[in-house]
């Protein structure tokens, strides 16, 4: 049996979050070890699912974000503070990712989203932070110890080649004009990627294909997928989407404050609101 479904970016995040929160590796880590969940909107949905708490605000759960027509960075006072480190299912305050990884448990899982994925499964993570952000803090122990690293990422972020994208970016000092924060891109090649296709496979055993993307009237960034499976699985999947995924509201992006922004490379850094272009607000 075949089903065609269209998912908006938020609906995709919800589906992916439901799948990741049910993965054997994540459930094992939740019971016995650490689950380290980096900031990000898809990860906020994962926290909602693991903690059964929809009050965790996705829009405030990210530092770097693509919003208001820019690659932006929101200001600290607009960021919501939710735990990132969980040990045996409980939030642990005051423990860094590095400290949690040093307290080695075989079942520990790290979950971090991405800004780009390519058809080879390479993951791209933009970094405009002055110290490289999350990846430098975790990549050493993850790589040397083989810690499970899960990348939940929607297919709206599919690009032709992540390595080429990383070379094109090449870091802030090599960019002449930027609409937004300038930076570079990490390329990761061996994470466990969970897109909408893997989510449907994990939950329902379906085989999925991305067939179209984009739209208007709220379908900006939407993806259309074809799924194949046995009749009861397809029926259960569609029922699941209708009950638990469809209608997920769009996430409100909270733009940074250009007037005080420390990303001086940005074309709009330092501009008062009256000087900022109309399309930005």
């Amino acid at each position: 049996m075949k089903a065609v479904v269209t998912l908006t970016p938020s609906e995709s995040k919800r589906l992916i979050a439901k799948a990741v929160s049910r993965m054997d590796a994540v459930r094992d880590a939740w019971d016995k070890a650490y689950v380290l969940i980096a900031d990000g909107t898809t990860n906020a949905f994962i926290k909602q699912e693991l903690l059964e708490d929809r009050s965790i605000a996705a829009g405030g759960s990210t530092i770097g974000l693509s919003t208001a027509g820019l690659l932006c960075v929101n200001i600290p006072k607009n960021r919501k503070s939710y735990a990132n480190v969980f040990y045996k299912g409980k939030a642990v305050e005051g423990t860094s990712f590095a400290e949690a990884l040093a307290d080695h448990h075989r079942e520990t899982v790290v979950i971090k989203g991405a800004n780009a994925i390519d058809p080879e499964g390479n993951i791209g993570i933009i970094t405009t932070g002055f110290d490289g952000g999350t990846i430098p803090r975790v990549i050493g122990p993850i790589t040397s110890k083989g810690i499970t690293f899960i990348t939940p990422v929607g297919l709206e972020k599919l690009v032709p080649s992540v390595p080429l994208a990383a070379k094109a970016f090449n870091g802030a000092q090599n960019i002449d004009i930027t609409m937004g924060a300038a930076g570079g891109m990490f390329v990761l090649t061996n994470t466990i990627v969970v897109t909408e296709i893997e989510a449907a496979k994990l939950l329902f055993g379906l085989e999925g294909t991305l067939v179209a993307a984009g739209g208007i009237g709220g379908n900006e960034g939407a993806v259309t997928l074809v799924f194949n499976g046995e009749e009861p699985q397809i029926e259960a999947f569609v029922s699941f989407l209708e009950k638990e995924v469809k209608g997920e509201p769009a996430i409100r992006g909270i733009k940074g404050d250009c007037r005080t922004c420390k990303y001086k490379d940005c074309r709009y850094s330092g501009l008062e609101e009256s000087e900022q272009p109309d399309w930005m607000n």
Partner: peptide, 22 residues
């Protein structure tokens, strides 16, 4: 091992009614 997909409930309903309904 269950992830709550409910394909089993769908299959069961198909067996009883030739249709789908939890």
């Amino acid at each position: 091992g269950c992830v709550g997909c409910k394909a089993c409930e769908m299959a069961c309903s198909m067996h009883h009614t030739d249709g789908f309904g939890f």
